[in-house]
Amino acid sequence: MSVGTTARRGAGLLGTVARVIGTAIALVLVLHIVLTLLDANPANGLTIFVANLAAQFNLGLDDLFLPDEPKLAVTLNYGVAAAIWFAITAVVVRIVRRLG
């Protein structure tokens, strides 16, 4: 096996890991939106866990939009953060695979 083949495999693996991590982060944000829209019990352990995790990955956008309706605020703010995470992930994966 040549060095070039090994580098391409490594870049492919690194790209896959980056895609999985970025997608998981975006899915946590989307899950937080869904739980909010469906009026999940805010005292439930899963709801608390997802909300805390989403707060860690919202890129500081939890107050980007300030509509009067709290559900709309969560949908807009966390939705924008999820879209940005998807975009960042796509760019990082493309760069990593090109370098490989």
Score class of each variant (00 low, 15 high):
residue 53 L to M: 14
residue 54 A to E: 01
residue 35 L to T: 06
residue 57 F to K: 01
residue 52 N to Q: 14
residue 48 I to W: 12
residue 31 L to H: 03
residue 51 A to R: 03
residue 19 R to A: 14
residue 58 N to L: 06
residue 27 L to V: 10
residue 29 L to H: 00
residue 60 G to M: 00
residue 39 D to T: 10
residue 17 V to L: 12
residue 31 L to P: 03
residue 34 V to I: 15
residue 51 A to L: 07
residue 58 N to C: 09
residue 21 I to Q: 07
residue 49 F to I: 11
residue 50 V to R: 00
residue 20 V to Y: 08
residue 17 V to D: 04
residue 47 T to S: 12
residue 11 A to N: 05
residue 35 L to Q: 07
residue 12 G to T: 08
residue 11 A to R: 06
residue 46 L to N: 01
residue 44 N to F: 10
residue 23 T to A: 09
residue 51 A to C: 09
residue 30 V to D: 00
residue 27 L to D: 05
residue 31 L to T: 06
residue 38 L to R: 11
residue 54 A to F: 04
residue 47 T to M: 04
residue 37 L to W: 06
residue 15 G to W: 03
residue 16 T to C: 15
residue 48 I to Y: 11
residue 55 A to H: 14
residue 60 G to W: 02
residue 18 A to V: 08
residue 17 V to K: 13
residue 21 I to R: 11
residue 61 L to G: 04
residue 28 V to R: 00
residue 26 A to T: 02
residue 21 I to T: 10
residue 24 A to C: 09
residue 60 G to V: 01
residue 14 L to I: 13
residue 30 V to H: 02
residue 47 T to R: 11
residue 39 D to R: 11
residue 44 N to L: 12
residue 55 A to L: 12
residue 21 I to V: 13
residue 59 L to G: 00
residue 22 G to K: 03
residue 45 G to K: 15
residue 15 G to D: 01
residue 21 I to P: 02
residue 50 V to L: 01
residue 23 T to G: 09
residue 53 L to E: 08
residue 47 T to F: 03
residue 58 N to Y: 05
residue 50 V to A: 00
residue 55 A to I: 05
residue 51 A to F: 03
residue 48 I to M: 11
residue 58 N to Q: 15
residue 19 R to W: 15
residue 57 F to T: 05
residue 56 Q to R: 13
residue 27 L to E: 07
residue 15 G to V: 07
residue 27 L to I: 12
residue 19 R to G: 09
residue 18 A to W: 01
residue 32 H to R: 13
residue 16 T to I: 14
residue 56 Q to P: 03
residue 45 G to W: 13
residue 38 L to N: 13
residue 45 G to H: 14
residue 27 L to S: 10
residue 54 A to Q: 00
residue 35 L to Y: 04
residue 43 A to M: 15
residue 38 L to E: 08
residue 50 V to F: 01
residue 36 T to A: 12
residue 59 L to M: 03
residue 41 N to W: 06
residue 47 T to P: 07
residue 16 T to K: 15
residue 22 G to P: 00
residue 14 L to P: 01
residue 23 T to K: 07
residue 57 F to W: 08
